[in-house]
Amino acid sequence: MIVGELDGNEKYVNAQMTGGASVEQVVDAERERERLLLRNGVDRIVRFRVRETYDRAQFIRKLLEAGVPLCK
């Protein structure tokens, strides 16, 4: 199973998203979430930013390199 995670600065600095946690705490929680996913059947986590999706061909290449199957 492959999981995609949209990255961005907002999730580290927006108080509504962090619940008041520090950047360090948010990063630690992110790492723990990744460990849990990997222990529970996820084979790979693909990280990307919104701007990477603007170039469709480049984004598809990234997903294919991660092993995401292409459906037509």
Rank of each mutant, 00 (worst) to 15 (best):
F59K: 05
L70E: 13
V27F: 12
V68E: 01
R49Q: 10
R61P: 08
F48H: 00
G67P: 13
R56G: 10
G67H: 06
L70G: 03
E52M: 00
D28H: 09
G8Q: 03
K11I: 08
V13K: 10
N14H: 02
V13A: 09
K11E: 14
Q16I: 11
E32K: 15
T53M: 07
D28N: 12
D28W: 08
L37Q: 02
G19R: 00
E52W: 01
T53D: 00
R49F: 05
V27D: 06
A57K: 14
L36R: 11
R61L: 13
R31N: 05
A15K: 07
Y54A: 06
R44M: 05
V68Q: 00
E65M: 12
R47E: 03
L36W: 13
T53G: 05
F48A: 01
Y54P: 14
R33N: 12
R44Q: 03
I45T: 05
R47L: 15
Y54K: 10
A57P: 03
I60E: 04
F48V: 08
G19F: 00
V23D: 04
I60K: 09
L38P: 08
E30M: 09
V42S: 11
Y12R: 06
R31D: 02
T18I: 02
V42E: 07
V13G: 12
F59S: 05
V23Y: 04
A21W: 03
A29L: 11
C71W: 11
Y12W: 03
D7N: 15
L6G: 06
Q58W: 11
Q58H: 07
Q25S: 08
V3L: 13
V26T: 04
L37N: 13
E10Q: 13
E52Q: 12
L38K: 05
D43P: 07
